[in-house]
Amino acid sequence: MAEHATPHFHNQPGVPAVRVGAKEFMCIGALPPFDHPHIFIDMGGDTEAICPYCSTRFIYDATLHGHSDPAECELKARAA
């Protein structure tokens, strides 16, 4: 499986907010098989966004450079 060109984030741990280092990303809700439809979120000029499916609050943090805090909220490609 190739790396995602667009970062994918989830909230499997159930934290109140996920800090992300990207303003354009996909939210998948939870880890498969409990994920929701993977939706594209574009924060535009804002620094926060809420997923309309799972209500996860995402907060932009440029210091994360495309990653997330907590780190386990970033979907990583599985090894082949």
Rank of each mutant, 00 (worst) to 15 (best):
Glu3Thr: 08
Glu3Phe: 06
His4Ala: 15
His4Gly: 04
Ala5Lys: 14
Thr6Ile: 15
Phe9Lys: 06
His10Thr: 01
His10Glu: 03
Gln12His: 08
Val15Arg: 00
Val15Ser: 00
Pro16Phe: 02
Pro16Arg: 03
Ala17Met: 10
Arg19Leu: 06
Gly21Met: 01
Ala22Cys: 04
Ala22Tyr: 01
Lys23Leu: 04
Phe25Trp: 05
Met26Gly: 03
Ile28Glu: 03
Ala30Asp: 10
Pro32Asp: 10
Pro33Arg: 12
Phe34Ser: 12
Phe34Val: 06
Pro37Leu: 13
Ile41Ser: 05
Met43Thr: 09
Met43Glu: 07
Gly44Cys: 09
Gly44Ala: 11
Gly45Trp: 00
Glu48Asp: 09
Glu48Gln: 15
Ala49Pro: 12
Ala49Glu: 11
Cys51Arg: 08
Cys51Leu: 06
Cys51Ile: 08
Cys51Gln: 09
Cys51Trp: 07
Pro52Asp: 13
Tyr53Ser: 13
Cys54Lys: 13
Ser55Lys: 15
Thr56Leu: 05
Thr56Cys: 09
Arg57Glu: 07
Arg57Pro: 03
Arg57Cys: 11
Arg57Asn: 12
Ile59Leu: 13
Ile59Glu: 13
Tyr60Glu: 02
Leu64Met: 05
Gly66Met: 01
His67Ile: 00
Asp69Arg: 11
Asp69Thr: 06
Asp69Lys: 10
Glu72Pro: 05
Glu72Ala: 07
Leu75Thr: 08
Leu75Asp: 05
Lys76Arg: 15
Arg78Ile: 04
Arg78Ala: 11
Arg78Gly: 11
Ala79Ile: 12
Ala79Met: 12
Ala80Ser: 13
Ala80Leu: 13
Ala80Pro: 15
